[in-house]
Amino acid sequence: MIYSIVVYGAPHSSQAPYSAYQFIQAALSRGHSIYRIFFYHDGATNGSSLVVSPQDDDLLPKAWHELKQQHEIDFVVCIGAGIKRGVINEQEAARYERTQHSLNDRFELSGLGQLVDASLKSDRVITFGAR
């Protein structure tokens, strides 16, 4: 089956991205494929290239990068959620006249349309929510 995953939580403050990561590993090992991971709300910070994790708690966001290298999965950070949290790419930095940009280049910034597209193209969409 084709799965897409929605992540609402940030590394180090919510369990959501860790649960999502473990769910994805289990789904892949059962022979499923992952079409897209959509990082929404605080989940946008999973896409920051500026995160430095403590050595004893460094699974994420590093593990996303390794997952991306091993599998063809779309990593989409919601653009609305990203710009509010300082997770922006070069193009958005220019648009909003910021001198820096922070989006990891394994991720894309895009809109909710990508979540709708993921729902249409996947057999299952699993949401890992956070408040």
Binding site: M1, Y3, Y8, Q22, F23, Q25, A26, A27, S29, R30, H32, R124, V125, I126, T127, F128, G129, A130, R131
Partner: peptide, 18 residues
């Protein structure tokens, strides 16, 4: 987690409460 994935295979829809 393997069983969790299996449950999602068996249900056409999932709904997350948070």
């Amino acid at each position: 987690y393997n069983g969790f994935v299996e449950l999602t295979e068996q249900s056409q829809n999932t709904l997350s409460w948070f």
